[in-house]
Design a protein around this nucleic acid. Structure first.
Lengths: 141, 141
DNA sequence: CTAATGTCTCTAGCAACTATAGGTTCAAGG
DNA sequence: CCTTGAACCTATAGTTGCTAGAGACATTAG
C-alpha cells in the first residue's frame, strides 16, 4: 500500500493532482489509514499511470474519463476508444496547422524589421493592422 | 463615437472581452454617455484591433501589455519589440515540436489498432503503459 | 520523545475569457 | 408620448487543469 506521496512519485504527478483527480471522480476514493491518510494499491497506481499518459498525449480529462470507463468493459468493441483517439489526433493536427500559420506570420514580421525605432517598426505596425498579413490566422481556441 | 457593442463588432471580439480588457488595464476607461454607457473613439478602436491581432498571433496578454507600452513611445529603439516577437516565435516553434511528437505517437497507436474488443485494443493498452511508446513525449505546459 | 517530514481539509489563484442575474438606458414604432 | 425590445450596466461565478497556501493532525527516524 502506497501513501499519496509515494504514489505521486511513482506516477510522476504532484500530490495535489491526485487529490484533484479524486475530487472530480477520475480516481475512486481510496482506503484510509487509521489516521485518515490515503492508501493506494496497484489498481490505483495503474489507473493513475493511464491518466498521466493520456494527459501527456494531450487528451482532455473528459476524454480520459470516457477512455477509463471503456477500459473497464474489456469485451466491448474498441470502436469508441478508437474514435476518441482519432478525435484527439485531428485536434492535434488542427493545432499544428494553426501554429504553423502563426509561425510563418511571425517569421515574416520579424524578418522585415529593420531594427530602427518603434516609429517604423514592422512588428508594431503589422500587429496594428491585419491587412499587412500574408495569410489568414486565427487564434487557438 | 461607438458603443461597446459596435466596437466589439468592428473589432471582432465579444462585448464582455472589452470590459475585461478595461478591467485589467489593457484598455483605458472610456468616456461615458449621460446614461453611463461606454463610448469609444478611434484610438480605442485601433488599440483594440492591435490587441486582437496580437492575441490571434498567440501573444499572451502580458506580452501585449508590453508591446502596447512600447508603441506609445515611437522614438525608442524597437529592439524590445523585436525580442518579444522572437520569444513568441520560439514559443510557437516549441509547441509545434511537442505537438508533432504527439501526432506521431497518436498515429502509431491508432494504426496498430485491429478494431477488435477493448481487451486487445492497442489504444487502451498503449495508454496504460508508456513503455509501448516509440518516443518521449511530454505534456504541453 | 521529539523533531522533521508528510498528510489532512479548505480556500484561493493562474490565463483569458464566458456566462449568468438582475437592473438601467436607448432607439424605434404606434 | 409611451411602450417595447434590444443593448447596456455591475457584480459574481464558471470554465480547464491544475498549483499554492494556511493551519492542523499523522507518521517516522534518530
Amino acid at each position: 500500500m502506497l501513501t499519496i506521496g509515494k504514489l505521486a512519485e511513482a506516477a510522476g504527478v504532484k500530490v495535489p493532482t491526485i487529490r484533484y483527480y479524486e475530487q472530480i471522480g477520475l480516481l475512486p476514493p481510496p482506503e484510509r489509514s487509521a489516521g485518515n491518510q490515503r492508501l493506494y494499491g496497484n489498481r490505483a497506481e495503474e489507473r493513475l499511470a493511464f491518466i498521466r499518459h493520456a494527459r501527456d498525449l494531450g487528451f482532455p480529462l473528459e476524454a480520459i474519463r470516457d477512455l477509463l470507463s471503456l477500459s473497464d468493459r474489456p469485451d466491448q468493441s474498441c470502436e469508441a476508444a478508437d474514435a476518441i483517439a482519432r478525435a484527439q489526433l485531428s485536434a492535434v493536427r488542427a493545432r499544428i496547422g494553426r501554429l504553423r500559420a502563426l509561425e510563418a506570420e511571425l517569421e515574416r514580421m520579424i524578418g522585415q524589421c529593420a531594427h530602427g525605432t518603434i516609429a517604423d517598426c514592422r512588428v508594431i505596425e503589422v500587429l496594428g493592422d491585419h491587412a499587412h498579413c500574408a495569410h489568414e490566422h486565427r487564434k487557438e481556441p
